[in-house]
Design a protein around this nucleic acid. Structure first.
Lengths: 195, 195
DNA sequence: TCAATTCGCTAGCGGTCGCTACAGAAATAG
DNA sequence: CTATTTCTGTAGCGACCGCTAGCGAATTGA
């Protein structure tokens, strides 16, 4: 009863999900067709629907897997660095490399995944994720304001939005083919805005 | 002979082009169908093809019209302001308002028009336009370095890319529904990175 | 007046989209 | 063994995509 009934799945669900992540990352939600996914995952389309439910649900699941596996460097910096300044400096230092990994798509799925679609679920999910990241930065900044590390007149929301804007701008530039080295120097300029 | 032969066009080509600009602006290249365009322009699809050639050509033409009518504030700032610093400060000051105009799409067509498509012509055209803007900023910055207004060790390319990254980040945030006032404060933070 | 030219509309082409009905294959339960 | 459950592959559904053939309508040149 506790064992699996029926014919067993003939592919590795997690490996397939990871491939889906990369395809969505490379081509966005709208630019990726279910046929492309099935072919890339080496499974038939009914198997895909059976395992993941549908394109939307697969995307949402892929988004979660992306955040855990590839997008976690933001949360890690926020968790591991003692101050907002150090966390942001680290994020700005790491982003150019993260967004130009060889044999991985350039840019960031969370930044550009919903571009070109009007699917409300996809848009909502990605906006929610971007807002979460911005809020996490804002919280870290407010913490430093409260402990006097940052001046009391610091605009935490604006500063957090600035960090997000720079990150998405760098991710966008990476998609345009700007070199990692140029992105590094761009991010270096961006750190100078810190109060 | 110099007059037009045959049945005259029954719609205003320029007005139709402007509507196309707004539709592409709002929904991007891939998200806008020729049927949507024809309906919004109040013409039949064959008329659209007759007047503009096709979706690609219409987009390229719309892009040019957009740059002239809505995107010109970058070139204007670069032309009218005496220094790169003042030009960038003005652009950062104006961008939040430009990207959140009432009864106009939010964000920037040049930033997000090609998102979600892999059409090589569209991608190439928009990348070219973005590169042009970045080069214009870099040239202005190099001029100020040559005349001693900016320090001689200024990284003109990185600084120009930074300006573009901030602008595209703000445009992206505008599309996410961030308020004009928050964008203003975000841009204010960005100006502090100036050397 | 009448051919020449250009535009507008109806209708539809071939292709791709997300998705699924259906039947056979492969496992477990009894 | 048979019955049940679950997965896989073929094959195709209806909708939409960009685009256009074909024909009548509207205008100009002679």
């Amino acid at each position: 009863m506790a064992t699996t009934r029926g014919r067993p799945r003939s592919f590795d669900r997690d490996a397939a999900l990871d491939k889906a992540v990369q395809l969505f990352w490379r081509r966005g939600y709208e630019g990726t067709s279910v046929r492309d996914l099935a072919e890339d995952l080496h499974i038939g389309m009914p198997s895909l629907y059976n395992a993941f439910g549908g394109k939307q649900q697969l995307f949402v699941e892929a988004l979660d897997a992306y955040d855990k596996k590839y997008g976690g460097f933001l949360d890690r910096a926020l968790a591991e660095e003692p101050t907002a300044e150090k966390a942001v400096a680290r994020v700005f230092r790491e982003a150019p490399e993260r967004y130009t990994r060889r044999s991985l798509p350039t840019g960031c799925l969370v930044v550009s995944g919903d571009n070109g679609t009007d699917d409300p679920t996809v848009t909502r999910e990605l906006r929610r994720m971007r807002a979460e990241k911005a809020d996490a930065f804002a919280a870290k900044i407010r913490g430093d304001v409260a402990t006097g590390i940052l001046p009391s007149d610091t605009d935490a929301v604006a500063l957090a939005r600035y960090v997000m804007a720079v990150l998405s701008g760098i991710a966008q530039a990476a998609r345009d083919g700007v070199s990692r080295e140029e992105l590094r120097r761009t991010a270096e300029v961006a750190t100078r805005a810190w109060p």
